[in-house]
Design a protein around this nucleic acid. Sequence first.
DNA 1: TTGAAAGCGCTACCAA
DNA 2: TTGGTAGCGCTTTCAA
Lengths: 331, 331
Amino acid sequence: MRPTMMDVAQAAGVSLKTVSRVVNREQGVRTTTLRSVQEAIQELGYSRNEHARVLRQNRASRMLGLVTRDVSNPFYSAIARGVEEEVRDRALLVIAGSSDEDAERERALLEVLCERRVGGLIVAPTGSDHSFLAPELALGTPITFIDRPPWRLAADSILLDNVGGARDAVEHLLAHGHRRVALVGDLPEVFTTSERVRGYQTALRAAGLPVDEALVRLGCHDTRSAEAATRELLSLPEPPTAVFAGNNRITFGVLRALAGRARPPALVGFDDFELAPLLSPPVTVVAYDAVELGRQAARLICERLAGASGPPRQIVVSTEVVPRGSGEVGP
Amino acid sequence: MRPTMMDVAQAAGVSLKTVSRVVNREQGVRTTTLRSVQEAIQELGYSRNEHARVLRQNRASRMLGLVTRDVSNPFYSAIARGVEEEVRDRALLVIAGSSDEDAERERALLEVLCERRVGGLIVAPTGSDHSFLAPELALGTPITFIDRPPWRLAADSILLDNVGGARDAVEHLLAHGHRRVALVGDLPEVFTTSERVRGYQTALRAAGLPVDEALVRLGCHDTRSAEAATRELLSLPEPPTAVFAGNNRITFGVLRALAGRARPPALVGFDDFELAPLLSPPVTVVAYDAVELGRQAARLICERLAGASGPPRQIVVSTEVVPRGSGEVGP
DNA sequence: TTGAAAGCGCTACCAA
DNA sequence: TTGGTAGCGCTTTCAA
């Protein structure tokens, strides 16, 4: 059996309360007593039961729940990293789970995390109704949405400047003389997709160019479909001279479609990636600090935990075009 | 205040025990009673307190602790993914933390996880003494080490075939006619480094070639130092005609050093990466299934939780050379 | 400086 | 089919 404080107390010949004092580093324990209790703890391999503490203190556990669409995706693992960095010194742990873009699974994960009485929740959401979190929010658990806003729930959110980033990318291509700029994008119902499409349209309209629907290929949710869509674009009677890729998966698909072509179209991709500078040509991207996204989310949670009230906040993280070569070739 | 079972009971006009039955889906509750309790639960936004359950049932919490060196590193996030996939159906959650290669931090994380009464621990270790985990192990908490073996502790481990993978890589280069094969490696005190060095030496010796220390550059813990080491190798009076890179960070550094060179040496890197096929030339690597590594670790934990006893097990995951171009050029 | 006792929210056990 | 009660391991409060 696992030793309890009572076991330690008996081994050390003191009362349970004295052991509690030692374990919690409280003042007012004679040095000799302290020593003998510490020895008993060592001897028995005692480890304090956090569940009993949480229960007795009737508080949240020192854990944050982080629900993303896939922990192994570099975007979300960077967020996880940022969250962890930010809460590390506050002795908070992170429980991370993947929804796999399944709203049911997302909900199940979030509910289980609430049963665990997490101190806060950070969600990169998939579902389209988060109203089931309203009671938890009302009870004081801070919840921050990241990458996409909450639906049917008034909660904090950290978003990228999707419109601005996409607009900058397309303007960058236009500035290099392109007039036929294609967009390869993810599922149109996804928040970030529709925002980036808006940015794309905004840039074209500001330049007095029409939005040619033949050059807009949405619904590419994986590398393969992005590759196929790009091949289709390139075999049009009037192919685009430049491509804007809506996210990193799509950029990889576009790159596969362009591989080996003598004179590939210009390319700017949303999302940076480590090897972008090593490709030929090096890939121009819309970059941002994904780790910072996680840090900001965690910071917001911590502020709320520290008592900050007030209406939901929305923080928009800026993006930046990083020219590397692929986006600076002419038509 | 957060509602308890007692609050629900009062709202529904039943006893606490009846609410417990409903919450736990026990048989023997009249349909009308069931309904009214469910309504009260909905009304109050009740959520069961998992800490109270764990305490009362005197069991481990349904959580696994996962301590890696950096959650945002693709290798470890793939492991996290594998662990999660494997335990998902068993309703286990994963608490993930990064040690940042700091043994003290690793120890602190592991101890906090034990206080949380995790059902099992998976560790990609940094420290060189894990004997402090002995009491926890003795109390029945399964612990699996991954990527590197435990030190001063008899516990399960999941390792890569580091020697075999490195040997295969070098043999692959030798088979293409190389006689001067360099090794760029991580810190020599790291387990995987020394194993891979052994594999490198084994391959050379088996081919009757000397191990030329001038061609062995260890201590490269980041991309930058690997790049510098590679530049040094290339400016030797007798430069290598092929390079074996000891891990993915090093491969990236080597690639940076080779970028733009008219006739780069052959290259095989340990660790696969998504963009390897898209580089020019595409990069030949020693590949393995990192997600499977995590799955195996979780499987081992689950078997132990299900009662499997016996001496520590060691599982070695095989590797495979994936030829893509960079490793198939002659000297 | 130390100890005794109540009780956090829940489940297990027994009773009705 | 339902309810009462003890107690999980700890912290809190009060007393010695």
